[in-house]
Nucleic acid binder design. Structure first.
Lengths: 213, 213
DNA sequence: ACCCTCGTAGTCAAACTTGACTAGTAGGTC
DNA sequence: GACCTACTAGTCAAGTTTGACTACGAGGGT
C-alpha cells in the first residue's frame, strides 16, 4: 500500500473542503514529493478513485476565483474518516520496510490521542523485533553464514535498517512520553496546511535536495 | 525506478537461458519477495517488455518437460547486458531512499571488479552526505526547529535512516577492501541460482518473516 | 474409475503511477 | 498591442503493479 491515500485524505480533512491543486500544494509544502510518489497524476487519480468509493464527496465548483479551468472540491465523508483513521493506525503500527507510509503517518500522528500513539509505536517496535528474529533465523544456513557469500550482505542491510528504524521509533516514543507536541484533545491542533493564497515558504527556487537517481 | 528489471536481467544472465518460472524461483530463493515487488505478474511483464525493447531474446519452446503450459525461454542480448551493467552501477551509486534497488544490486555486486565496486559505494556515501546536508539546511526554518512541530520528526526519520545507510555502506566498503567475497576476474564466481530441478532450501513451509502490512 | 491436491507455467483485468500535455488568465515588457 | 512567461487547475496515454485466475499433468488415496 502506498502512502498517497493517507496523504490525500489527511490533506482534504485538514481543509474541510479542498480541490486537487490545494492538496497538491500541501503535499509539496510537506516535502512529500521527496519521500513519496505524490505526483499530480497520482493525487488527482486518488481523489477521483476515493470519491467513486464514497470516501470523499465531490462538489463541482464555478471556474475558480483567479484564472484557470473549473475545479472540483472534495470533502471527507464519515466513511472516509474511518478509512483515514484505519490507514493512519496501520501505518504506524506495521513495519513494512517502505518509509513513505510511515512518514505520512508521522505527519498525522497528532490526530490520535497521545496514549494511542505511544501504544501503536510500541506495537511497531515489537513488529520490527519479530521480523528481525524471523529473518536472521530463516536466512542462517547450516553451513555457517559464510556459505551465503556476498548474498548475506543483503540480509545485513535489511537487519541494519530494521535496527535503525527501531532506534528512531524508541526516540520518538521517548519524546512523546516526555510531553512533546500537541495531540488530539490537548488544545489547539497544529496547523499544517497552507491557507488559500498563502505561499509555500519551502517552495521551489531553493536548491533541490538532489534526487540522484 | 523499481528493482524488477535489474533482478530479472541478472537472473536470466546467470542461467544463460531461462524461462519465467525459473526466474520466479530464483527471486524467491533470493528472498526478493520480501524486499521488492517481485510478484509473478511483474516478472512476466518485465520479461515481455524487455524482449520487446531488445534487451532480451525470446525463444518459443516445446510444451515443457514435466507438465504445464508451453514456456518461453529468454536470453540476454548484448544491449541487455549493457543495460544490466548500467542499472547495476546506478543502483549502487545513487541514493534513492528505496532499498529494494540497492538490495538487488548488492546481490549482483560481484559482477563488477572489486575496485569499481568500492568506488561506486564511495560515490554513494558522498551522495548521502550531500542529500543529508541539503535536507537539513532546507527544512530548518528561521524561527528554530521547534516551529515545525511534530513535522520535524519526518525529517528526523529520513536523516536517521540516511545516516544508518551511510554506516552500512562504510561497513561494506571495509569488508570488500579487506578482501571479502570473489569479484569479477578473481576466479570462480559465486553461483546464486537454482539448477533445473533443484529445490529451494529456503522455500515456503518455513515460518514467513511476518509481513505485518 | 474417481477425486483431490500439488507443482508447473503463465494470463488477465483492474488499479495505480508517470511524465508530458492542455487551456485559461494575469502581468510584465519591448 | 503583441509576445512571453508564470501560475492555476487539471487531463491523458503509456507503462507498471497487483491479485486472482486458468490450464495441464502427475501422484496418491479410496
Amino acid at each position: 500500500m502506498s502512502a498517497i491515500r493517507l496523504l490525500v485524505l489527511g490533506a482534504v480533512r485538514m481543509h474541510g473542503r479542498a480541490h486537487g491543486y490545494q492538496v497538491r500544494n500541501d503535499l509539496e509544502y510537506w516535502g512529500a514529493h521527496e519521500w513519496s510518489n505524490a505526483k499530480p497524476g497520482s493525487i488527482y487519480h486518488a481523489l477521483k478513485q476515493m470519491a467513486k468509493q464514497g470516501l470523499l464527496l465531490a462538489h463541482e465548483t464555478a471556474p475558480s476565483t483567479a484564472g484557470g479551468p473549473p475545479r472540483t472540491e472534495y470533502e471527507v465523508t464519515d466513511e472516509g474518516l474511518d478509512e483515514y483513521r484505519a490507514l493512519l493506525r496501520d501505518a504506524i503500527r506495521s513495519y513494512d520496510r517502505n518509509m513513505d507510509v510511515l512518514s505520512a503517518a508521522v505527519g498525522f500522528i497528532v490526530d490520535l490521542p497521545r496514549e494511542e500513539a505511544v501504544a501503536l509505536l510500541k506495537e511497531r517496535i515489537e513488529g520490527i523485533r519479530e521480523w528481525r528474529e524471523a529473518v536472521t533465523e530463516y536466512y542462517t544456513p547450516e553451513e555457517g553464514p559464510e556459505s551465503l557469500g556476498h548474498i548475506g550482505e543483503i540480509m545485513n542491510l535489511w537487519v541494519h535498517s530494521a535496527d535503525s528504524g527501531a532506534e528512531w521509533t524508541r526516540g520518538l516514543i521517548a519524546r512523546i512520553e516526555g510531553g512533546a507536541y500537541t495531540f488530539a484533545g490537548e488544545g489547539d491542533p497544529f496547523v499544517g496546511v497552507l491557507a488559500e493564497g498563502e505561499e509555500n515558504p519551502y517552495a521551489t527556487g531553493v536548491p533541490d535536495p538532489g534526487d540522484n537517481e
